[in-house]
Design a protein around this nucleic acid. Structure first.
Length: 191
DNA sequence: CGTGCGATATTCT
DNA sequence: GAATATCGCACGG
């Protein structure tokens, strides 16, 4: 089932948790590339680690728009990261998708990633954008259209199978418990 | 196994 | 000029 707009129109911490076990689907050159979401992080405008903490800019303006759209940004001079916008219009919130478990189109994904082992294919925010061919052309894209790039519902996850901890790769806001991942899943990104 | 660092463009101070 | 929501290779044990 395609996730509807209302799914994204909730608090970013709730959406980040509920995205675990859902499927990210990418239509690429006639192939279907699918990964199960196993790790997420939440960011919002009152959080010092958020790109929108100091207001709207050209880069982060998508986060201020309607929920259910993709926020893709370029970082470290060579990597893209993929987020989904949440919350109400005018409030900047987004969930960073940090890791996927490969499900479908694994051969194509491996080609895009340069022939890595299964565990290395999508286990990091910049790895999964490369493996699913996501770049700035998809920034602002509406994920509720159900084409090109979208997310479908997964099996419900028990509270005891979710680990909540601090985020990776940031300094500001590093003590906030805004990172969520599936316990014992080997495709979660490493520290 | 583990730690350290270079790549390389955009944004921030 | 410095920092950055990162990755992968080089090196040492």
């Amino acid at each position: 089932m395609l996730l509807p707009r209302q799914f994204y129109a909730r608090d970013v911490l709730i959406v980040a948790r509920d995205l675990l076990n859902c499927y990210l689907v990418r239509e690429y050159n006639g192939h279907l590339l699918i990964g199960k979401i196993v790790e997420t992080e939440a960011y919002h405008q009152n959080d010092p680690a958020c790109h929108a903490y100091r207001g709207k800019t050209k880069r982060n303006e998508v986060m201020f728009g309607p929920p259910g759209h993709a926020y893709v940004y370029f970082t470290y001079g060579m990597h893209y990261c993929f987020n989904v916008v949440t919350g109400d219009i005018g409030r900047a919130e987004a969930v960073l998708i940090r890791a996927l478990e490969p499900v479908k189109g694994i051969d194509i994904i491996r080609t895009l990633r340069g022939g890595k082992s299964d565990r290395e294919l999508l286990s990091g925010p910049a790895k999964l954008t490369r493996g699913l061919a996501i770049d700035l052309k998809l920034n602002g894209y509406d994920l509720t259209e159900g084409k090109i790039l979208y997310i479908t519902k997964g099996e419900p996850v028990a509270e005891e199978d979710i680990v909540v901890t601090t985020r990776i790769g940031i300094n500001a806001g590093k003590d906030l418990p805004y990172r969520f991942y599936l316990k014992n899943n080997k495709y979660v990104s490493k520290k």
